[in-house]
């Protein structure tokens, strides 16, 4: 018999005292899953100078936050964070543990899952609760976490489950789940752990000698309008037209993987399964054929306009407006009209 609470845990990434968006997105998703399961939502914060960090996460419905505050934990390294999670999970026996599919989550998650012998699914695009029947053994598993993710370069979608092992672990990319405040009034419990009871000197085997964060130049994820270009845009020069349109109507420039690989746009502008997920009010897809990988990252946009000289481009099937023409002829017309007619 399992006597523990078996709650849902979210590992929070913290940079300069600020909880990362991806973690808040996971708390939002975690809260709704926890409500469905009838369990509590617990957050984990590991770092230094964390006083007050709970105020950032309580509005997202966190019932309990575990804080590990220590000077030595100022910069992330794999081992101390792994040791803390492994020991905490052994004590608390969570049924589900979620973390961001970031450089940190994808470094930490596999190591924790290996130490606990539990399963981990990377890069989930959807998380649901459901049952599973093992026909051969005539066994029914109730309320499992369905970890849904694209596989094989986005050509298939697989639903993964961990019937026997706990916690059921999953990572999710930034921007995939929606961040939404649960209640401004919500208050949870704060538990400050003694870090020395968890980590040992051997856990600090890796030293960070130098680290410089380059702040992101573009904010494509939060943009209300995205003007995105694909390989069909043809050149870096033509991408200039997209920049001009984006600047005119107040949007950001995005790109498909093919356009990034061709050097037309920077990697941080890549939209799709291996880039960022966006859901703007308006998405103008220029010269983008519409590979599944790309569509996965933009299909929830409210209005999609496709500008493509191929009327059969797959992206047209999900577009609201299809303009069959080239970027060079269409985009300048849009810029011209907007400049003349906006106040």
């Amino acid at each position: 018999m399992i006597m523990k609470m078996n709650n849902l845990f979210v590992y929070c990434e913290i940079e300069d005292g600020i909880v990362a968006d991806v973690s808040l997105e996971l708390l939002t998703k975690g809260k709704s899953l926890a409500q469905q399961l009838g369990c509590k939502l617990e957050a984990i914060a590991i770092g230094s100078h964390l006083s007050g960090v709970e105020k950032q996460v309580f509005p997202y419905g966190v019932d309990k936050i575990h804080i590990f505050d220590d000077e030595r934990l100022a910069t992330y390294t794999s081992l101390p964070h792994t040791t803390i999670l492994v020991k905490l999970f052994q004590k608390e026996a969570p049924q589900i543990a979620l973390m961001g599919a970031t450089c940190i989550g994808r470094d930490l998650g596999p190591r924790v899952s290996s130490a606990l012998g539990s399963g981990l699914t990377a890069d989930c695009t959807s998380l649901e609760i459901g049952d599973h029947e093992e026909k051969k053994e005539n066994k029914i598993y109730k309320d499992l976490l369905y970890q849904i993710r694209p596989a094989f370069g986005g050509n298939i979608v697989a639903t993964i489950i961990n019937p026997e092992c706990r916690p059921q672990m999953a990572t999710v990319r930034e921007g995939v789940m929606k961040k939404e405040v649960f209640s401004d009034q919500h208050i949870g419990e704060v538990v400050c752990h003694n870090v020395s009871e968890y980590v040992t000197e051997e856990d600090f085997a890796i030293t960070v000698l130098d680290r410089h964060i380059e702040k992101s130049k573009c904010n494509i994820k939060g943009a209300q309008i995205v003007v995105a270009g694909g390989y069909g845009v043809g050149s870096k020069e033509n991408f200039g037209l997209l920049q001009e349109l984006a600047a005119t109507i107040g949007g950001e420039v995005g790109a498909s993987r093919a356009a990034v690989d061709a050097g037309f746009a920077e990697h941080e502008r890549q939209i799709g399964q291996t880039g960022v997920t966006v859901r703007p009010k308006l998405y103008i897809a220029c010269g983008i054929s519409g590979q599944i990988q790309h569509i996965a990252g933009m299909q929830e946009s409210s209005i999609i306009i496709s500008v493509n000289n191929d009327p059969m481009a797959p992206i047209n099937t999900i577009a609201d407006y299809v303009i069959t023409g080239t970027v060079e002829e269409v985009i300048p017309k849009m810029i011209k009209y907007y400049k003349k007619n906006s106040k």
């Binding site: 539990s118 981990l120 050509n155 979608v157 697989a158 993964i160």
Partner: peptide, 11 residues
């Protein structure tokens, strides 16, 4: 393998 593939769908 703790993880099992429950189902696979074409996109």
């Amino acid at each position: 393998s703790p993880t099992k593939v429950k189902k696979i769908e074409n996109v």
